[in-house]
């Protein structure tokens, strides 16, 4: 196991609450926890862009908003360009030291907003792009997305027609754009999440933070198990926590003792139809993905 220097000390969490009660997230929503932590870190000089996604609803109906920073709701596929253009507007009117954050779900990121995301990354627009990934179209009632993992039930992959395609690897795609910073994180590790937002804030150019975000209704999981699911995702290596700088330099954030993938699957009803063989297949592909990731780490270390 690797030494994890940043865990030797406590991560300071700002006391300020910029996200307030009265939001309309489901109980146990990972995306609500993620926002609370992110806003504590980002502070009040932040503008948040929501495309169509759960957070377009969670923030509350007009005239309410759960976030006491400016919020701009935009069309489904336009989170990235909208944030990039807000930055252009701020720059030309001389407004400085403001975080511009696009906050999109996996549908808006992996699917309908994918072309725009790629373009924004290629232009290296100076924004933080956050994908809170609950692995399906949860806002419209649990339809499959290209972030839905192999084997998962959704309302458009029902019964034996469960999803037979693998999940897109977002970080690899974004790394291929050679953006200054890309990272994965999840809500079971607030210190990791906060540290990565801090780092993103300190870097000029396009930053992407991919947050694994448990969704009790969509994953058919217990509300009380969201943090456990998030932790098991990391421990089982289904969702490893790492960073990629400039698209080439990979760095693992933590390497806890490996937990069988079955533990992670067992928490979620969306996988309950899977046979032992199918569960073994997920274990095998998880191990292969991990080995590939370790290869990237090794190459990065060698370059260093």
């Amino acid at each position: 196991m690797r030494a994890l220097p940043h865990l030797k000390q406590f991560t300071e969490v700002a006391e300020q609450e910029i996200m307030h009660s009265g939001h309309v997230a489901c109980p146990g929503c990972g995306a609500a926890i993620a926002m609370r932590l992110a806003l504590k870190t980002l502070g009040r000089r932040t503008i948040i862009v929501f495309p169509a996604c759960c957070w377009a609803v969670i923030d509350g109906p007009f005239p309410y908003s759960a976030c006491s920073v400016p919020v701009f709701q935009v069309a489904f596929e336009t989170a990235s360009i909208s944030a990039g253009a807000i930055r252009a507007g701020l720059d030309i009117t001389g407004k400085k030291d403001i975080n511009v954050v696009a906050w999109a779900g996996d549908g808006g990121t992996f699917d309908i907003g994918f072309g725009q995301l790629s373009a924004c990354a290629e232009r290296n627009d100076n924004i933080i792009y956050v994908c809170y990934d609950n692995e399906a179209y949860m806002n419209t009632g649990i339809q499959r997305s290209s972030a839905t993992p192999w084997g998962s039930w959704t309302t458009t992959t029902p019964g034996t027609d469960f999803k037979k395609e693998r999940k897109k690897n977002l970080l690899e795609i974004m790394a291929a754009h050679r953006i200054p910073y890309a990272a994965t994180t999840t809500v079971a590790y607030p210190d990791d999440l906060i540290r990565k937002f801090r780092k993103a804030m300190s870097i000029d150019g396009f930053k992407l933070i991919h947050i694994f975000s448990p969704c009790p209704p969509g994953h058919k999981a217990l509300e009380k198990d969201s943090i456990l699911e998030s932790r098991y995702a990391v421990e089982s290596r289904v969702f490893p926590l790492y960073e990629v700088e400039h698209g080439t330099h990979y760095k693992l954030s933590m390497d806890p003792p490996q937990r069988p993938v079955r533990d992670y699957l067992a928490l979620q009803g969306r996988f309950k139809h899977l046979t032992d063989e199918q569960r073994d297949f997920i274990q095998k592909s998880t191990d292969e993905e991990w080995a590939r990731l370790m290869h990237f780490m090794k190459v990065s270390e060698a370059v260093e």
Binding site: I47, V49, F72, V74, A75, E77, T78, I81, S82, A83, G84, A85, I86, R87, A88, G89, L90, D91, I92, T93, K95, G115, Q116, S118, A119, E122, R123
Partner: peptide, 22 residues
């Protein structure tokens, strides 16, 4: 600032974002 976007859809999204920023 001239944002050289990848589609007309983004061209208008860009105008909307920048105009909203003032």
């Amino acid at each position: 600032k001239f944002i050289k976007v990848e589609s007309e859809h983004s061209a208008m999204a860009g105008c909307i974002g920048a105009q909203a920023a003032g």
